[in-house]
């Protein structure tokens, strides 16, 4: 009897995940025209506890998306505009001299904008590497160390960074170590004609939809735990692992494409990211198990910033997505 109740409860909780995500998507869609796939991928990334790097030209709604998500999910939202003169302390916070009640001077930690639930690191590649690296600890450990003190960041904690792929003058490309800490790298597509018209109508009109809070931090943390139980069959797991290994040109699983175009392959974080995000995708698809399709779906955002192409690929105009698609095809046919 108790088992049946537990089972029902579990079923409900798993169904609740899909339901919550659907409601969030519906709510975000009130403020975002199109970009449904982008929204879903951002949500998957957030529910998996990862950080996302959004890449797209200015004006595509990246900031609006992050702000909307913060409001719909009732999370504390911070925005940091990265510039070349931005210092690490501007992000993490700093110790300031303050007076206590008795008037004595003392150092007091003044938290920076990173102390939020959703951090929008806008144009992250404009900051210097020193400042960019200030995010490393926060993104990986979800802590901030200032002086000799380490501060825990509020949970859930997501960094949603954006970068402009075309304006490279005066930018500092993210180092591989930093890139690897982003669970997903998402490309924000340019809207279609109809979407563009809708965007214009929505943003220049007088009416503005009111956003409702659909979920909160506690529920998101609960969902994170729930999705970890989604089973992965051995063949599916092996496929994911082979996919990661196949991105290494020197690996025994390396495919012809990988050998030809890849300079460095994905780190083990890529494999972790594949399984973690595929589990959420399976739930969102109404399944209680991970399928090959889930792995293939998340492979692009997980791996596209983890595979470094060689000069041959760059000269031929091959993109990481092309390479990943080919590797998947080759693995399926092997």
């Amino acid at each position: 009897m108790e088992t049946r109740e537990n089972s029902l409860k579990q079923e409900n909780s798993l169904k609740h995940v899909a339901d919550t995500v659907s409601r969030v998507e519906a709510e975000v869609a009130k403020h975002m025209v199109g970009q449904k796939e982008l929204i879903r991928q951002v949500l998957i990334c957030m529910l998996a506890g990862g950080n996302a790097l959004l890449e797209g030209v200015p004006g595509l709604g990246k900031t609006r998306l992050v702000k909307t998500l913060g409001r719909v999910m009732d999370l504390k939202f911070s925005r940091i505009q990265f510039t070349p003169d931005l210092m690490p302390a501007d992000i993490t916070g700093t110790n300031i001299i303050a007076r206590d009640e008795e008037g004595a001077g003392m150092f007091r930690f003044q938290p920076g904008p990173i102390f939020g639930n959703i951090i929008l690191a806008d144009e992250i590649n404009r900051a210097t590497p020193k400042t960019q690296s200030a995010l490393l600890e926060a993104m990986q450990e979800q802590t901030v160390t200032v002086g000799s003190n380490t501060y825990k960041l509020p949970q859930p904690f997501f960094v949603l960074a954006t970068q402009n792929p075309i304006e490279m003058e005066g930018t500092y490309p993210l180092p591989e170590a930093q890139l690897d800490r982003f669970l997903f790298k998402l490309q924000v597509p340019f809207p279609s004609l109809k979407e563009l018209a809708d965007i214009v109508t929505m943003t220049t009109g007088s009416e503005e939809e009111t956003l409702n809070k659909v979920t909160d931090a506690g529920e998101i943390l609960s969902i994170r735990e729930t999705v970890k139980e989604v089973p992965v069959a051995t063949p599916v797991m092996q496929f994911a692992m082979k996919l990661v290994l196949a991105t290494h040109a020197e690996s025994e699983y390396a495919t012809a494409t990988a050998k030809k175009y890849i300079r460095f392959g994905s780190s083990p974080r890529g494999a972790q990211a594949l399984i973690a995000t595929a589990r959420i995708r399976a739930i969102l698809e109404g399944r209680y198990n991970v399928a090959f399709d889930d792995i293939k779906y998340v492979a692009f955002p997980v791996l596209r910033h983890r595979v470094l192409l060689n000069f041959e690929a760059l000269s031929e105009g091959i993109t990481p997505d092309n390479v990943i698609a080919e590797i998947i095809k080759e693995l399926e046919n092997s």
């Binding site: 088992t3 537990n6 089972s7 409860k9 579990q10 079923e11 798993l14 139980e229 989604v230 089973p231 992965v232 069959a233 051995t234 063949p235 599916v236 698809e285 399944r287 209680y288 198990n289 991970v290 399928a291 090959f292 399709d293």
Partner: peptide, 26 residues
Amino acid sequence: LKERVITAVELWGDSGEVASLQRNDA
């Protein structure tokens, strides 16, 4: 069937809640 059957077959001896949910789904 999106790997439902192979997952269910692999989880056949598992009495966990998610496993039985998945089995029933398969």
